[in-house]
């Protein structure tokens, strides 16, 4: 689509803030216009990276599961982690990538909780790997205008 969606959202957001909002009589509705403009700006920031960050994250979690699964004592969890680790993206629509991401992150919570209760260097190593992945996950989702 041309003009690019990111540019359209950014320009429309700026126009809403600079031109439309001041012309709206009610302060409440001015605020609503401001919120809609901010939502468009966030959507513009997310649009371009939406697929790539999910593909990157899903691959990263699958690699973590491949590494961690052999050390998981719970056989049912080990089996599920192995199955998820063997998965791959077949549908590259954002909704499909998101569904895979949710399944992987739900299993990541289970793995995290499980290895936190284990002792030994291998468990500690997996916990460290999970924290590294979680830090990266927040970097992938960072917004320019976010307070922190």
């Amino acid at each position: 689509m041309r003009p690019p969606i990111v540019t359209v959202f950014q320009v429309v957001a700026g126009d809403l803030l600079a031109r439309i909002a001041p012309a709206v009589g009610s302060s409440y509705h001015q605020g609503t216009v401001g919120m809609v403009a901010t939502l468009l700006a966030i959507a513009a920031e997310e649009w371009d990276r939406a697929a790539s960050r999910r593909i990157e994250e899903n691959a990263s979690i699958r690699a973590l599961f491949r590494d961690a699964a052999p050390a998981v004592k719970n056989s049912s969890l080990r089996q599920r982690l192995s199955e998820l680790a063997a998965g791959e993206e077949r549908d590259f629509r954002v909704s499909a990538l998101e569904a895979n991401n949710c399944a992987l992150r739900a299993a990541l919570i289970e793995l995290h909780s499980h290895v936190e209760n284990e002792t030994g260097p291998e468990a500690r190593r997996i916990v460290d790997q999970i924290w590294k992945e979680l830090v990266k996950s927040t970097e992938r989702r960072r917004l320019v205008a976010a307070p922190f």
Partner: peptide, 10 residues
């Protein structure tokens, strides 16, 4: 949209 990631980082 605006605060969930900041909250995670916090």
């Amino acid at each position: 949209w605006w605060l969930m990631n900041s909250q995670d980082r916090a």
